[in-house]
């Protein structure tokens, strides 16, 4: 949608890119422009690293694996939440310009580093936490991989808590108590986990004013999830489960 292929020739002859980077602490700040050398092949993370290393060491940002496994480098790139290590500059460059900002819907610590505290607090609040039903002295629970519940859980468990979905979600922006797509997605996987013992608490947790019923199915979460997960579908599952629970329907 924002690929700039029409200007590819222009891009390949360009020597520098104009990169706007959010600078500031907490609520205050502004975009600062940098002229970054264009390489044949570079990611947005390469761009940010170039700014911080030879150009401006005061730039704060997060990354770890730089190969698309950890989710630490998630930022807003031209207004869309992405993993910067897996975003090729040529795919998002707009007439030689880039805009890089910290993840939306989260408080900013400094520059490109967002405060993930509320994201993880909501994870716990949604009971997206495993509650064992057995001790080490009990027999191991046999889990049949063909069980529909296991299939449902497995389809959603690859979440690495990068908060891209949380940044994309307008229901999160509109409701500060909304638990968000990631936490609810995880709650859904645990709801389907045969080994878990806290389903009653979990359904309560996702039925309140911040619960799954705030989702408007805009599907921004699944649109942007770099792991191709589908929190909207998980949340739909939670909606069904909470209704069944409310109406006293035994599963």
């Amino acid at each position: 949608m924002t690929t700039d292929f029409a200007n590819t020739d222009e891009n390949s002859t360009r020597t520098h890119m104009s990169v706007s980077v959010w600078r500031g602490e907490g609520d205050s700040g502004a975009f600062q422009q940098f002229q970054v050398p264009a390489q044949e092949s570079q990611t947005i993370l390469d761009v940010v690293a170039w700014i911080q290393q030879p150009s401006d060491p005061t730039l704060s940002y997060r990354y770890a694996c730089r190969v698309g496994m950890c989710g630490s480098c998630a930022m807003m790139v031209n207004g869309k939440p992405r993993w910067t290590c897996r975003t090729h500059v040529k795919k998002v460059l707009q007439q030689g310009r880039l805009e890089i900002a910290p993840l939306r819907n989260l408080p900013v610590i400094k520059d490109l580093a967002a405060d993930m505290t509320e994201f993880f607090d909501k994870w716990v609040k949604a009971e997206a936490v495993f509650h064992p039903s057995k001790t080490r002295d009990d027999a191991i629970e046999p889990i049949n991989p063909a069980n529909p519940k296991r299939i449902a859980a497995s389809a959603a468990i690859e979440c690495i808590n990068c908060a891209v979905c949380y940044a994309a979600c307008d229901a999160v922006s509109a409701n500060s108590e909304y638990l968000g797509p990631a936490a609810l997605n995880r709650a859904w996987t645990l709801l389907n986990d045969e080994r878990d013992s806290a389903n009653s608490e979990r359904l309560q947790a996702v039925s309140g004013v911040g619960g799954c019923h705030n989702c408007h199915s805009q599907q921004g979460c699944m649109n942007y999830c770099p792991n191709e997960l589908n929190p909207t579908a998980s949340i739909a599952g939670l909606k069904r489960a909470t209704l069944k629970h409310l109406l006293g329907w035994r599963d």
Binding site: N175, E177, Y178, S207, G208, V209, G210, G211, H213, N214, K239, T242, L243, L246
Partner: peptide, 9 residues
């Protein structure tokens, strides 16, 4: 914002 009851209604 909705809870499960309002959603059901």
């Amino acid at each position: 914002m909705l809870d499960v009851r309002l959603y059901l209604l």
